[in-house]
Amino acid sequence: MTSRETCPSAPAGAAVTGQATDRPADAHTSGAQAQRLASALRVGPISTITAAQELDIVHPPSTVRWLRNRGYSIKTEWIYKTTEPGRRPHRVGLYVLASEPS
């Protein structure tokens, strides 16, 4: 089965990627990922790790750039955050929404 074939056990319209999914196939477009990030930023700051793990954004810095190119003002602050207990912290971006396009 290729990555674009559907699976009987997957939700309607979902692409099979070797993992179970609860998102439609188009949820990984740049626009869909940007919508998820913009919605989360309206609530508060989001780290690169949180964006990747909880929002299912493949490459958060690219999604931030995508939004900035469309008029969003997003500040980047640098923080140290662990990915797992007991692991050394990583320096990651913390994105803060300053303003949206008018």
Rank of each mutant, 00 (worst) to 15 (best):
T2E: 13
T2M: 06
S3V: 14
S3D: 05
S3M: 03
R4Q: 06
R4A: 03
E5Q: 10
T6P: 06
P11N: 02
A12D: 07
V16K: 03
Q19I: 05
A20F: 09
D22V: 07
R23D: 11
P24H: 10
P24V: 07
A25L: 07
A25C: 13
D26Q: 10
T29I: 09
G31C: 10
G31F: 08
G31H: 12
A32C: 12
Q33N: 08
S39Y: 03
A40Y: 04
L41P: 01
L41Y: 08
V43T: 15
V43L: 15
G44V: 06
I46G: 01
S47G: 03
T48M: 02
T48V: 03
T50M: 00
T50C: 01
E54R: 15
E54S: 06
E54Y: 06
D56H: 15
I57M: 11
I57Q: 04
V58W: 15
V58T: 15
P61H: 07
P61C: 04
P61T: 05
S62V: 02
T63A: 10
R65S: 04
R65Y: 02
R65V: 02
R65H: 04
G71Y: 09
G71S: 07
G71F: 05
Y72W: 15
K75N: 12
T76R: 15
E77F: 00
W78S: 00
I79N: 01
I79L: 05
Y80C: 11
Y80H: 15
K81A: 06
K81Q: 11
T82V: 04
T82I: 04
P85L: 15
G93M: 01
G93A: 10
Y95M: 08
Y95N: 03
A98I: 11
A98P: 01
S99W: 05
E100C: 10
P101W: 06
